[in-house]
Design a protein around this nucleic acid. Sequence first.
DNA 1: CTGAAAGCGCTTACAG
DNA 2: CTGAAAGCGCTTACAG
Lengths: 351, 351
Amino acid sequence: MRFFDEQEDMRPTVHDIAAEAGVSLATVDRVLNARPGVRAKTREKVEKAVTKLGYVRDVAAANLAKGRIYPFTFILPQNDNAFMRGLHDAVEQAVERGPIERTQIDIVDVPAFDAEALAAAIDAARAKAPAGIALVAIESAPVIAAVARLKQAGIPVVTLVSDLQDGERDHYAGVDNRAAGRTAATLLGRFLGERRGTVGVLAGSLSVRDHQNRFEGFSEVMSERFAHLDVLAPMEGRDDAALAQKLVEDALTSHPDMIGLYSLGAGNRGLLKALDPAHDSGREIVTVAHELSEHARAALEHGTFDAVLNQDAGHEVRSAIRVLKAKADGLPVIDSQERIRIDIFIKDNLP
Amino acid sequence: MRFFDEQEDMRPTVHDIAAEAGVSLATVDRVLNARPGVRAKTREKVEKAVTKLGYVRDVAAANLAKGRIYPFTFILPQNDNAFMRGLHDAVEQAVERGPIERTQIDIVDVPAFDAEALAAAIDAARAKAPAGIALVAIESAPVIAAVARLKQAGIPVVTLVSDLQDGERDHYAGVDNRAAGRTAATLLGRFLGERRGTVGVLAGSLSVRDHQNRFEGFSEVMSERFAHLDVLAPMEGRDDAALAQKLVEDALTSHPDMIGLYSLGAGNRGLLKALDPAHDSGREIVTVAHELSEHARAALEHGTFDAVLNQDAGHEVRSAIRVLKAKADGLPVIDSQERIRIDIFIKDNLP
DNA sequence: CTGAAAGCGCTTACAG
DNA sequence: CTGAAAGCGCTTACAG
């Protein structure tokens, strides 16, 4: 027998708050959204009611009512490798989810490794005053200056995949590349076991922060724990298939004792053209690479690659969007929720 | 200058469909939700309008209007190990998200490894006619029968973490445990390199399907690729700390040549009590374990564990809920989106 | 078999 | 500084 309704598991609505506080819906809304123009005393009444009833805003309903659309711009490098294509796809999928997520995403393509072009694209994007901008950063003066201009214009910026110095941007959506390099070193060193010889490193360009950080992490662990292995100076293949192939072929020839290789950049295709024949002819070179492209997957299955480190471009894009929305609304970002993991794949745990 | 409004990027609403088809909102809704009582001809008109305008339903608005709440029941084993506690936590977090996700989740705890108790809990849950049930399965006759009764009552069932035969349940939210076992074998074998000796296996209980599958996968790869290693018969520690500790201590004593260990069950605590002293005294036993608990993380950092395979309980629970909702609504499940990954952690890529 | 109207929880002009 | 009313896109009784 119940004498009055406890409404036990009905969550309170703005109506309940308004009734409890003795004010109108509009005032409740003002307080809830920290909008100006409410007397301190009125504000307090509403806040008390919110606490008392344990009110939690229904975000979906709020969005519906707002009809708000977030215009975002994603600036991506026109880099023809599987990872960047995957990133592009992930952003395009986000574009398609736009109507549902209330975003309106513009994609701007810029030439790869071109700081001037990137800076120009940032300025052009700024002129359209979007609610936020995401970009794959290049650490160079014109880019840093252009990002500072975004900051001044009050436009939130998220770096994607490759970061910029702290303070310049609002958030970085990508993996810890130093940790990735360390992970690669541990796997390579342990897979090599007792074997002795030289280890090659193939980078895209050490002028990009993510490649540089991977190399640092890798070198740290190699000298800390695998000092018996001889790490060669890094080759820079500019993520170009033909160049990468040539560099690796030359290295294989000039270092007959090469038993390990860490490919820390993109563009596994050229690398594999050099490596597959060696592997098939029985030369055992333990190889750790990055990004689970179709080529990388095939190489794992074939045995040419021993491990592949991966960052999930889809996760990175979704995280960037969540963060941009939060920044646009002046809401806090829960860092632990936005951490992007370094995935390790071997032939047995391929998805 | 624009002569008429193209409404280019306004997505069409039910109103637009109604206008285009020349029917009322109610009829549009009936067609959209495949509800009965619409003349074939009317239905066609609406469908034509939907296609023509490229209508996509706003799910959030639909949910708001429905005010529908999904009552689900999660049946979990009262198993005192870190993984099961983590699973419990993940479900509790889902309970808290209930108001936002429009779910009303009941958690039912049952004794671990007790098929009768689990079957009884399933029947009791069925009596309350929830919109769906998730459970950590035990493959045994009473459980299979109880699940079949759910099926007959038209209640969707998802197995969580540990599966049941195909056909009995609607979906399995967990990892591919055979692949997990294979992954463990590859890591263990490769980390051992040229070393020769015996390899121990510690399971919880081979009567549970997930443990059994891991062991199968592990054995396959060991005999395929690391036949020079001597894999001992599996020990069954029932995920009990004291028992596991004793079993491993005994094995270490009776097999002085033991150089590898695969712990495929839960309960790393007991295992580590046996293993840490051995490790600290300089005995090198390459160890691969499951589930990234606090103990496992510490063991990775300390060097006692060499790799840890992990399944993300949070992902599994969220996937189970998505699937239960879809099944409750008679909607299709996108399998590729619900695949749960096997994460590999070493000391360098700890999150 | 079909439709007009009210309502889900919130926000937004517009008045006052 | 505050409130009454309309509306976001959809669904649901209730009439007919």
